[in-house]
Design a protein around this nucleic acid. Structure first.
Lengths: 170, 170
DNA sequence: TTAAATTTTCAGAATAATTTGAAAGTTTGT
DNA sequence: ACAAACTTTCAAATTATTCTGAAAATTTAA
């Protein structure tokens, strides 16, 4: 397979992959494009390669910067901004986990905390089923929270090395 | 907080939560509703409680059954179908992980395998950056694959107990 | 076999998400 | 201060997704 074709397929697939995870297609495609670009790209480059408008490019680049997956690069002698993506995928994964945990898991756990305090007789089956369900979810959610917290702090060698062995023999 | 209010808030939040994960709102809400219902519900119950049409209810219930998160229940003396959700959240998590791994991670790893065989001179910076990116993603993806595979097979006690200690001292 | 009960389907309607493009805003060099 | 280069914004257009509701299909009881 030729490089150009492979790149194109990667960008398209990464975009499709993103949509399954609540990330919009273009944002994922821009990220993919930057991941496989040796040099930083400017807005025009991205607009051209993905066939998108200036506004769209701008908004999604902004969003990627907000997620700390992309950063601005100053190139001396150039007036416009260039962008580059973090190439260490392990860092990327940790960054995404960190952000999504903060934006989604943490608020959910907070809510579950409130909901577990529902009033009513525990011998009432309706009440019991509800509090049981909430407490169950809370318990698993809190464990996920701790696990992800550790994952965020872990370095890749530890993850790829020790964890694998532990899982195998655990 | 009263039970009815708490239920409503849970169903709504679970629905919103789902949308961040590529799951449609109604599907997540039906799941939430069944999670906190002591008795199986029929299509009518679900339509009523969520204010949705018969077609919508039917399609999303089907989808939940397809994901093996909900199952049909026969109630003797009743002609219509009833539905119930798996209440053990750990099982639910494993089931979702299993399905998403099969539907998303496995195909992605297959694609990365193909893409890593791109032709061209490795001293060409364009080629090198591409293959490096692909191989990096593949490596992390394969580790995630093994980890999730183990998680799918693990039982909850192991997850809540051993893993936590391992993570803490790892 | 018949018909009532129930489920399924799917074209069209409604809603939501994304994208465009041009105008407004900002920055930079002179 | 000026204007060219560049970035940002956002109303309107487009596209994608979800939902409805009524008709068709299926199942069940007698």
């Amino acid at each position: 397979m030729k490089l150009a074709e492979a790149k194109q397929q990667f960008v398209a697939s990464w975009g499709a992959f993103g949509t399954h995870w609540g990330i919009n297609r273009t944002m994922a495609q821009i990220h993919a494009l930057l991941l496989v670009s040796p040099k930083p790209l400017c807005a025009e480059d991205i607009m051209e390669q993905l066939n998108i408008s200036r506004g769209n490019a701008n908004m999604n680049i902004r969003e990627l910067i907000d997620w700390a997956l992309v950063e601005r690069v100053i190139i001396s002698g150039e007036r416009k901004e260039f962008f580059t993506a973090e190439k260490d995928i392990w860092k990327v994964v940790r960054q995404i986990v960190r952000e999504r945990k903060k934006r989604e898991l943490d608020p959910m756990l907070k809510l579950l905390g409130n909901l577990s305090e529902v009033e009513g007789d525990k011998r009432d089956k309706e009440v019991k089923t509800f509090t049981d369900a909430i407490n169950n979810i809370k318990r698993v959610g809190e464990q996920a929270d701790r696990t992800l917290e550790t994952l965020i702090k872990a370095d890749e060698n530890w993850f790829l090395g020790s964890l694998m062995k532990i899982f195998k023999t655990g």
